[in-house]
């Protein structure tokens, strides 16, 4: 496992990283935790000429509350997300999902920004970020730019980031009262990526009517996607078992499902519906208890 030759850069600031990116563009790759990039470099499937290591940059890591939102630095590791008391109190679905990524070694190295920018179609966090309605902040040569999560994931391993932009932070609005979330995942038996991963967020009002619903699904298509049809169906309804089931049946509408060694498109669509129902069921329990 010997990667091809590359030049290694350790910028000390985001601006420095951006200018390196701007200089080398497609020949450069950003390195955060490295748990997606380094394996494919070792297989020589990726052969960047320049590797720009972000880990010397101060201030890109950490979790804080600011202005009615939770702000997570792009270099924050999965373990920091998984173990954050602030997140457990405010957005428990995020630590729940982060704790299901890879294994402990991966979670200690892998970062939230790295995972989102890599946009693996089976990664866990994109589904959660979508469900939470997050915004992603990136720095480029012309300054900062914010993208909504649903506009961020473009296609297989492709995001809205420009080749000379660095993802710096993820902002997640604090949820409304009586909101509950859950992440349900069917892990790949080898990689532990999501064959199907469903993040569901439900808000109910005092009459137990669904006020808002958002569902992010990962694993089955070329990118993580919102399950709009299922969400729409639930809003304004009393969330009984039939309603959750009917909503789950609509989870895959509009998603083009990829068959692979883990199963046919038919099977994966079925799984997505089962996991959507499970995620909705748990999210509802938590919303009611909140």
């Amino acid at each position: 496992m010997y990667p091809a030759t590359f030049e290694y850069h350790t910028p000390g600031s985001v601006n420095e990283a951006v200018s390196l990116l701007d200089r080398y563009k497609d020949e450069a790759k950003l390195l955060a935790g490295g748990h997606s990039l380094i394996p494919i470099m070792k297989l020589r499937l990726a052969q960047p000429k320049h590797l720009i290591d972000l880990r010397k940059i101060q201030g890109l890591s950490g979790i804080r509350e600011a202005g009615g939102a939770i702000v997570i630095g792009a270099l924050t590791t999965h373990w920091m997300v998984e173990s954050s008391d602030l997140l457990k109190q405010t957005l428990p679905i995020l630590p729940e999902a982060a704790g299901q990524i890879g294994d402990m070694q991966v979670r200690n190295m892998g970062t939230i920004g790295g995972s989102l920018a890599h946009a693996d179609p089976a990664a866990d966090l994109p589904a959660v970020i979508l469900a939470l309605g997050a915004e992603l902040k990136a720095m480029g040569p012309k300054g900062e730019r914010t993208t909504k999560a649903e506009d961020f994931f473009v296609d297989l391993l492709t995001t809205a980031l420009q080749p000379n932009e660095v993802l710096t932070e993820i902002r997640i609005p604090l949820p409304l009262p009586k909101t509950g979330g859950a992440y349900e995942k069917y892990p790949h038996p080898a990689s532990r990526y999501a064959v199907v991963g469903v993040a569901a967020l439900l808000t109910v009002d005092r009459r137990d009517t669904v006020q808002s619903a958002s569902i992010g699904i990962t694993g089955i298509g070329s990118k993580a996607t919102r399950a709009r049809a299922a969400e729409q169906y639930l809003i304004g309804k009393a969330p009984d078992n039939d309603a959750l089931k009917t909503a789950a049946e609509r989870a895959t509408e509009g998603i083009s499902i990829r068959a692979d060694l883990q199963g046919s498109a038919e099977y994966k669509a079925h799984l997505a519906k089962v996991y959507t129902r499970r995620a909705l069921t748990r999210a509802l329990e938590r919303a009611r208890a909140a």
Binding site: P39, L43, H188, A190, S191
Partner: peptide, 11 residues
């Protein structure tokens, strides 16, 4: 061989 890495071959 489609199961040629640890990512696909399930130990």
């Amino acid at each position: 061989l489609l199961t040629g890495t640890m990512m696909e071959y399930a130990l």
